[in-house]
Simulated assay, not measured.
Amino acid sequence: MAFGRRNQMEIPKPPDVEKNVLSCEGDDCNGWMREEFASEDELCPLCGGSMKKEIRTLPEIDKNNNFYGR
Rank of each mutant, 00 (worst) to 15 (best):
Q8S: 14
R70Y: 00
L43C: 10
G48W: 05
E10S: 10
P14D: 00
D62Q: 00
K13D: 07
E36F: 08
E60M: 04
E60C: 02
F67H: 03
T57A: 08
E60W: 00
P14H: 03
S50I: 11
K53I: 08
C24I: 09
R56F: 15
K13W: 01
A38H: 02
G4L: 14
V17P: 03
S39N: 13
W32R: 08
Y68C: 01
P14G: 01
C24A: 08
G69T: 07
A38R: 00
M9S: 13
L22M: 05
K19L: 05
A2K: 14
N7V: 14
A38T: 06
S50Y: 06
S23G: 05
N20T: 15
S23W: 07
N65P: 03
E10I: 12
D28K: 07
N30C: 12
I11V: 15
F3M: 13
N7K: 15
K13E: 12
S39C: 12
N30M: 13
R34Y: 04
G31C: 05
K53V: 12
N20A: 12
N7A: 13
A2Y: 12
G26E: 13
R56K: 15
R56Q: 13
P15N: 11
E35M: 11
N65K: 01
F3S: 13
K63C: 03
G48Q: 09
L46I: 11
K52F: 06
R6H: 09
Q8K: 15
F37P: 00
